[in-house]
């Protein structure tokens, strides 16, 4: 190993004396390059651990990257709270006129409303790409493709870091305000809280899976704005963000509850409210997470093969 990594001796004979260049501000530093013993020695740790460390660090940096935009996050939290209050009054009026609709009472409906507001940030319900489409368009994707890491894994880790940050800044404040103003229904058992945490995480992964597909579509159509628009409308409606999916009648209700977007709002909210069997909910979400990630992996491979990197 070490023999292989050693530097070959530099060919000494140079045909031509070189012009000397002033070193500018550097010249006061009398730095020399020391010929080190070969570094890049593989760490003694198990490779799995090293990989985990890498992705954990990416996630942590994703968190920190977003924390550079604290004012934006706080403004988002404020907006989410105000809209939560407006929507809560609409839903109260609706549920007072139609008690028991969708199996919710008024308190459930108001809680649902504030949960959906809380999900907006972490699940990026109003769209919000991974930045990859822009990088494909500009050609910076070349750099991402050079890195010895999985593009999808990388972006997922980064996105989880982002989601955690937005969860803290954009999910908790509206929920607190909602609880103070309206008195929300909170799970009573620790098990439900744990199930909700897992459910929310899976929801974020499904959201990532879908947004990743939208971003990569830029490889084929050069611009993801169209797909992002379509995706925005689909995710707002089919996730349960606008109205609970349980309200939808007959086959429409069945269909919307089976689509991946339900894993982002309706299902985690129902886990929170205790309106769904936990194992069913988590299996459903994990299934869609697996499908979207697998599809993303296949498309990444196709993209690598066809990739036409923009710009010189």
């Amino acid at each position: 190993m070490s023999a292989e990594l050693r530097y070959p001796a530099k060919a000494t004979s140079r045909g031509r004396p070189r012009n000397q260049v002033a070193h500018g501000p550097r010249s006061r530093h009398d730095g020399t390059l020391v010929r080190n013993p070969p570094c890049a020695v593989a760490p003694a740790r198990a490779p799995g651990e090293a990989v985990f460390q890498l992705y954990a660090r990416i996630a942590w940096y994703g968190f920190r990257r977003y924390s550079a935009y604290r004012a934006a996050a706080l403004a988002g939290a404020f907006t989410n709270t105000v809209f939560g209050i407006l929507r809560a009054y609409v839903l109260i009026a609706l549920w007072q006129a139609r008690p028991g609709l969708a199996g919710y009472d008024v308190a459930d409906a108001v809680t649902f409303c504030f949960l959906t507001q809380a999900f907006i940030g972490p699940m990026q319900l109003f769209g919000g790409g991974l930045g990859m489409a822009e990088r494909i368009r500009s050609g910076d994707a070349a750099i991402d493709l050079l890195r010895p890491a999985s593009l999808q894994g990388w972006l997922l880790a980064d996105d989880l870091g982002r989601a955690l940050y937005l969860f803290l800044l954009r999910s908790i404040p509206p929920t607190i305000v909602g609880a103070l103003l309206f008195g929300l229904v909170f799970p009573s058992s620790a098990a439900t809280w744990a199930a909700f945490a897992v459910s929310m995480l899976l929801g974020i992964v499904v959201s990532f899976g879908l947004r990743y597909l939208v971003d990569l579509s830029a490889c084929w159509i050069l611009d993801d704005r169209g797909t992002a628009q379509v995706s925005l409308v689909l995710s707002l409606f089919f996730s349960g963000m606008v109205v609970p999916l349980n309200i939808m009648p007959g086959w429409l209700g069945t269909a919307t509850n089976a689509l991946p977007w339900a894993a982002m709002v309706q299902v985690p909210a129902d886990v929170f409210l205790g309106k769904i069997t936990v194992t069913d909910a988590l299996t459903f979400q994990a299934g869609w997470a697996a499908v979207t990630l697998a599809l993303g992996a296949v498309i990444t491979r196709a993209a690598r093969r066809k990739v036409v990197i923009q710009g010189g």
Binding site: L54, Y61, R64, R65
Partner: peptide, 25 residues
């Protein structure tokens, strides 16, 4: 004309990420 560095992070942190990425001890 492009950069491998992370726009929002201090330079030092980009290097740290690269260390993990390339598994440099």
């Amino acid at each position: 004309q492009r950069t491998t560095l992370w726009w929002d992070l201090p330079l030092r942190d980009s290097f740290e990420l690269i260390r993990h990425l390339y598994k440099v001890d």
